[in-house]
Design a protein around this nucleic acid. Structure first.
Length: 544
DNA sequence: TCTGAAGGCGCC
DNA sequence: AAAGGGCGCCTTCAGA
């Protein structure tokens, strides 16, 4: 493979043939280059396997996706170019692969860019991206986003490499306690699940009932005189009938078995580690997704199986009330920022006299960010709007923009996907069609309303993690990644660090300091607080 | 027999 | 008690 070096002046310093990737990277890493590559996991996974860490990178595919749709770069050559190879979705990680045999690898400092040539050529793509950023109205903001997105990709690869410490024994104990022992035959119902089902069948007088089939269950409920339009748990819970409690219990247990039962354990845990396939930028808002293993839906009732190694601790941290705080800061709503300054934002809203109870404050804020129109959330909106016109005005504007088919943009510059075609609304003749078009428009408005908040919160989280990573590296700059404290889990506004016990308190400090860093990266000197709640525990189930 | 949609539910 | 945003995964079920 080939590597091209750029210098500060923007000139190409040299092009080299690379035979041993790991040795090549190790030799240059002391100069703190930024490694530019087409896909982080593809290049970094083999490096990690070879015991090599890198500080900084630039992930061309992830950054291309941001620049392709950002409203800040809509005039760029990149945004106007036809969709191509760089617009393809992330390749699935799969097993840790052998070193790639083609494409190119680059290091970069600060460069200016000549014109691109071949579409699939990473050098051309890199230069196209650099010119898009340089020519946009907010290059430093967008630059921070691209750096944050890229460091996220490094972290995703490192977390997959390190794995989440997982005790198969504890997991089995949790399953056995609620479901009964693992059945000898795969696919058979465990004893306790079967026992609960027997009671349901008996009380519904429906011995053949398949409780996993909504249609069949609906039929059986109807025959028992229970009129209900769906089999959702919350709807069933409103019914008074002796079959309902065991049925709800069955649903809970059955969910545990099918999603995180023994089959999941067999598939996803090996050598005491759970290694999810993280997909940075997997959601349109910039949130991560995962592919396989359902890592972002890890149920609370099995988190006790996440157990620190002997002599190690889990440092679990989550950002408190992140999204409303993000909204307050992006809108520069001084009143709402002030409400969050003493600790509990919702309590602060009550203290300001805007609403009566903490519960009201919470429901109203969620309603504002999600677009509640009815229910308590909808009813409380006028009071909330009076108290915090800037913050609420910001999400309202985002909603209206979405309804008009316009794009909205996060703090650092990630834009929403192209919206619905607002033109069809006026052109439709049938009133039913017009109503559908209006509903679609409003649904899109709820999406764009939430997009600016969720997307900016995702940016904050990336900056937070990036800073945690850098600070942890300072605690362990000589050893291998897993010899010192390292990130092992990320869940939108929550992180878990696996740390030697004697460093756990220091790690907690790192995580708090990093939250301050993240606030500054997004909002400068604005006095917005982003407090984190931290627990030092032996297993994840003990946190919160 | 395979595939995709729908119903449902776990997480934030 | 229920409603608003983002996801992934499991099961059933209808259609090719």
């Amino acid at each position: 493979m080939r590597a091209t070096s750029f210098g500060d002046s923007g000139a190409v310093i040299g092009v080299e043939q690379v035979d041993d990737l790991a040795a090549f990277v190790v030799a240059r890493e002391t100069g703190h280059p930024r490694w530019v590559w087409d896909d982080t996991s593809r290049w970094y996974a083999p490096l990690l396997a070879a015991g090599v860490r890198v500080d900084r990178c630039f992930d061309l595919r992830l950054c291309h996706a941001i620049l392709r749709s950002s409203s800040l770069t809509s005039d760029s050559r990149l945004a106007r170019s036809r969709r191509g190879l760089w617009d393809a979705p992330a390749p699935a990680a799969g097993p840790v692969a052998a070193a790639p045999s083609h494409s190119a690898l680059f290091e970069w400092d600060q460069v200016a860019a000549p014109a691109p040539s071949v579409e699939s050529d990473p050098v051309a793509e890199f230069e196209l991206q650099r010119s898009a950023v340089a020519g946009c109205p907010e290059p430093s903001r967008l630059g921070r986003l691209l750096a944050a997105e890229s460091v996220g990709a490094l972290i995703a690869a490192e977390m997959r490499f390190a794995g989440l410490p997982w005790s198969a024994g504890r997991h089995d104990a949790i399953l056995s306690a609620s479901l009964g022992p693992r059945p000898a035959v795969d696919g058979a119902r465990p004893a306790k699940l079967q026992a609960v089902l027997d009671i349901v069948r008996q009380r519904l007088e429906s011995p053949e009932l398949n409780p996993d089939s909504p249609a069949d269950l609906l039929r059986a409920l109807g025959l028992a005189g229970l009129m209900v339009t769906s089999t959702r748990s919350w709807e069933l819970a409103t019914l008074k009938h002796p079959a309902i409690p065991p049925l709800l219990e069955y649903k809970k247990l059955s969910r545990l078995l099918s999603s995180n039962g023994w089959a999941w354990l067999d598939n996803w845990v090996a050598g005491g580690r759970f290694r999810p396939d993280y997909v940075p930028g997997g959601a349109a808002t910039g949130r991560w997704a995962t592919s396989g293993g359902g890592a972002l839906q890890l149920p609370k009732n099995i988190r006790g199986a996440v157990v620190a190694d002997e002599g190690w601790k889990l440092v679990v941290a989550d950002a408190s009330q992140l999204e409303p705080r993000i909204l307050a800061a992006m809108a520069v709503d001084r009143g709402m920022i002030e409400a969050g300054s003493a600790g509990d934002l919702y309590a602060g809203i009550v203290a300001s006299g805007a609403l009566e109870t903490r519960d009201q404050a919470k429901v109203a804020m969620l309603g504002a960010m999600y677009g509640a129109t009815t229910g308590e959330g909808g009813r409380l909106m006028p009071a909330l709007t009076r108290a915090y016109p800037r913050a609420i005005g910001m999400v309202e504007n985002a909603a209206r923009a979405g309804e008009r088919g316009e794009v909205v943009t996060t703090r650092l510059g990630r834009s929403s996907p192209p919206g619905h075609d607002s033109g069809t609304w006026n052109e439709t003749v049938s009133s039913a069609e017009a109503a559908r078009a209006r509903d679609r428009g409003r649904a899109w408005g709820r999406f764009t309303r939430n997009f600016i908040v969720q997307g900016t919160a995702a940016e904050w989280a990336l900056c937070w993690m990036g800073s945690i990573r850098r600070r942890l590296h300072e605690l362990n700059d000589a050893g291998a990644l897993v010899d010192g404290p390292h990130l092992v889990f990320f869940l939108h506004d929550e992180v878990v660090v696996h740390a030697p016990a004697d460093l756990a308190v220091q790690v907690a400090g790192v995580i708090s300091d990093a939250a301050v860093d993240a606030g500054r990266l997004l909002f400068g000197q604005l006095p917005a607080q982003f407090p984190v709640t931290i627990a030092i525990v032996d297993n994840y189930g003990q946190a919160k």
